[in-house]
């Protein structure tokens, strides 16, 4: 009797622990999203460096981004000249428009490009300044040490995300993911690294982000500057085709 009571207790404990681990993974993921999507909206200037991991050719681009909530985004290129003025408006799950200044024309583009690389960078349209995972992935804690959790994120059935699983290292201090490995066909296809996080007012913002395409041996490093938060961008009608055509300094 004593033995069976012990077994029952052990089972309950293990079950509770397993349940706690699964919950903790998703809870941690929720805190990651909360930590990184705190502001109602923000705008920033971004400097992007595109280069070969082996140290080959290097190119710098400057762009301006406006983001509100989880799914409203405007991106405009400021330099170099070949792409200056090109803008992208993304509202909702799949509605995307591209502004082409040479033709003075706004063109609807397919939401299916969201998994394609954004204008030759290593970020996909989906990955540009976006840290949303909970809708598409369920997380469990894979391992843990004194400083960080390592989460295993598995793609949910029906999700359109490109990567079947992610391995995310989350800093215990601030719930910011420092490294995310994105797996395709069982192998890491891309590695996202957040090397700098800045506290701006009441918000935590990753300001130095690097995305490496493992197969192409190429990376894009993005540094955010001139951040401004909670300016009521939606009220200013920033997420509109009219704004997309406007020139920015």
């Amino acid at each position: 009797m004593k033995r069976s009571r012990f077994l029952l207790t052990a089972f309950l404990f293990l079950g509770a622990t397993a349940g706690l681990n699964a919950e903790t993974g998703n809870e941690i993921l929720a805190k990651v999203e909360n930590a990184l999507t705190g502001p109602e909206d923000y705008e920033a200037t971004a400097v992007m460096t595109l280069a070969d991991t082996g140290g080959g050719r290097k190119e710098t681009r400057e762009l301006k981004i406006w983001i509100a909530g989880n799914n409203k985004r405007v991106i405009k290129f400021l330099s170099p000249a070949g792409i200056k003025g090109i803008g992208l408006l993304s509202v909702g799950e799949n509605s995307m428009h591209l502004y082409l200044p040479a033709q003075n024309k706004i063109r609807m583009i397919s939401g299916s490009v969201k998994n394609e690389n954004f204008q030759g960078t290593d970020f996909s349209y989906n990955e540009m300044s976006s840290y949303e995972y909970r809708d598409d992935y369920s997380a469990v804690v894979q391992s843990e040490d004194a400083d960080a959790w390592t989460l295993l994120l598995t793609k949910k059935p029906g999700s359109e995300r490109e990567y079947e699983k992610l391995v995310m290292t989350v800093d215990k201090k601030d719930f910011v993911p420092r490294r995310i490995e994105l797996f395709r066909n069982g192998a890491p296809a891309k590695i996202l690294t957040i090397s700098e996080v800045r506290t701006e007012g009441k918000y935590l913002v990753p300001t130095a982000i690097r995305m490496e395409d493992v197969a192409k041996k190429h990376y894009t490093e993005m540094t955010l500057q001139d951040l401004a938060f909670d300016q009521g961008l939606e009220g200013k009608d920033v997420f509109s085709k009219r704004f997309l055509k406007k020139r920015v300094q």
Binding site: N94, M96, R107, M108, I109, S110, S112
Partner: peptide
């Protein structure tokens, strides 16, 4: 009219 069907426009 332009209509995004998801896999094409």
């Amino acid at each position: 009219a332009a209509w995004d069907l998801g896999f094409m426009v």
